[in-house]
């Protein structure tokens, strides 16, 4: 369970939000909405411990995330605006290296099957540079499928995806929630998923 109390965020001289409380339990997801510049990404980065809040605290299973540190980071997966996909490497290399960075190992068979599931069959040995924007995002989604994390924090995961990929991602999130996972995401689209709550900034 992720809880946050009294969060506030200051960017430059502007206060983006203050006194923000939120809680996400197993099987639940939170849809963060707001206009451009309302602080959606800033909130997600605070929840992911990438930047410290100006005030307030984030707790995971009752413990402050600053105390848990790597235990929290192991349980959490963050996908930001930038995909953390290396243009010069192939989808397969990207996937296995990301897994090693996460402190786990991923054998080639599992990585390949995840890539196939996201429609990247035959592209696994091509440098990501040669893929389209949508295909690049699909490489990222494959990472969601192979990484075992309880909490997903996704910033605009539907950007640059075609209808088919949007469905695939929705399905992925749905099964993640059904298995007791949690998700926090920003998106301009409305999402037909159960157990969702909306947080407007």
């Amino acid at each position: 369970m992720l809880t946050a109390t009294g969060l506030s965020c200051v960017r430059g001289e502007r206060r983006l939000f203050a006194g923000l409380d939120l809680a996400v339990g197993p099987g639940e997801w939170l849809h963060v909405q707001g206009e451009n510049g309302a602080g959606k990404t800033s909130l997600l980065r605070i929840l992911a411990t990438l930047s410290p809040p100006a005030e307030g605290e984030v707790r995971w299973q009752g413990e402050p995330v600053t105390v848990l540190a790597e235990d929290y980071r192991r349980a959490m997966l963050f996908l930001g605006h930038h995909g953390a996909v290396k243009e010069e490497l192939t989808p397969l290399e990207n996937l296995t290296l990301a897994a090693q960075l996460d402190g786990t190992t991923l054998d080639e068979a599992n990585a390949l099957s995840a890539l196939m599931r996201f429609g990247l069959r035959g592209r696994e040995d091509l440098a990501v540079r040669f893929l389209s924007a949508g295909q690049k995002r699909r490489v990222l989604l494959a990472r969601l499928a192979v990484r075992k994390a309880t909490l997903w924090i996704l910033d605009e995961p539907f950007t640059a995806l075609d209808v088919k990929a949007v469905d695939m991602l929705s399905g992925l999130i749905e099964s993640h929630l059904a298995a007791g996972g949690m998700a926090i995401l920003t998106s301009h689209q409305s999402m037909p998923l159960p157990n969702g709550r909306i947080l407007s900034l």
Partner: peptide
């Protein structure tokens, strides 16, 4: 930094200093 890998390094369970 540009492609977001640095964020993932910070969030890795391995201490950033080692990476």
């Amino acid at each position: 930094h540009a492609d977001g890998t640095l964020e993932q390094m910070v969030l890795s369970p391995t201490p950033l200093g080692l990476l």
